[in-house]
Structure formats: C-alpha cells, structure tokens
Amino acid sequence: MSEPVRFVSQKVDLDYKVVTSPVARRFDEQMRAGRITGHKCPECGLVYVPPKGFCPIDCVITDESNEVEVRDAGTLTSFTVITPIQYQGQEEKEEYVLANILLDGASGTIGQQRVEGIPHSEVRMGMRVKAVWGGDPNEGSRGWGLTGAIKHWEPSGEPDEPKEKYQEHVL
C-alpha cells in the first residue's frame, strides 16, 4: 500500500498597478461629462470607441484633434443571458444580460454592456437601446470599456434595425 497523497494549499496573489493611459484618461473625463467620444482615423475614417490613440488598420497615431462624439444610443448586435455560477467572490445572484452594442456614429461595437428594463426572453439582435447614465464613474477602472458612468442600457422604443445594418458587427 502506498501512502495517501497529501496536499499543500498555497494561495498566491500578485498586485499590479493599473495605469490609465493619457488617451483613456481623456475619454474618462468626457464620460464623466456625459459624452461618449472616439477617435476618427484621418485616413480610413473609422471611428474607434473608446479611442486607442491610433488606427490599428492604417497604423497612424490619433489624438484629441481626431476626437469625435458619438451618440449614447445604438443597436444591440449580439447578447448573452448569463447564469451566475456562485463561486467565491461572485456578486451576481440572478440571471442578467450582457450585449455588444453598435453606437450611432461608431465603427465598431462596445462589448459586455449590461441591458436592463426588458424581459430576457424579449432581448433580440437589432434592438435599439439607449444609455442610462448615473452610474459610478470610478468603476470599471482597468482602462478599457466605457467606465462605470453608464449604469446600463435599456430599450429606446425605436423600431428594430434590419439585419443588413448590423450583420457585419455580429460576433
């Protein structure tokens, strides 16, 4: 008989300092003022929201002179109803919806956006949504996403977009 296997548990953690880049900092300031901004590439005209400080296709640097404001409304292009697993640290208890949203005036979607104010069974691609402001702008501080200034998105009541309008943005 071999000895039973013995286990040693060791919890490891690493601390990282999150540094917000100057481009993200400017974006955050605009979000706190209620404006969603992006950078428009001077060569191809694509609008990146949030801005990156460059166009990854043309490889040109962009800055505040390329800043444009986009609407706080858009089209839901895809979504997931998430059932939260109750792992340690999980704060969600109920099912919720995360969606990709193509903002009016932006060339690409923003991801992981919370959608409220509609039964989950009625959430659909092509649905028009608008921002509900008043969240905590200090949340979502890792330098990406839309920060916490927008609490969530809700249906705007406008008619759905036809699939031709958003099918390139379905992931």
């Binding site: 540094v19 917000t20 880049s21 100057p22 481009v23 990156k52 400080g53 460059f54 490889c59 640097i61 330098g143």
Partner: peptide, 14 residues
C-alpha cells in the same frame, strides 16, 4: 510609462 504597450511599440516599429 503611462502609454499602453501598443503605444510604446508604435514609434520603434515606425
């Protein structure tokens, strides 16, 4: 540095 790694790379690749 405050820039992203991608931003740090742009000038050296250029």
């Amino acid at each position: 540095v405050e820039e992203t790694e991608t931003q740090l790379l742009f000038p050296v690749i250029n």
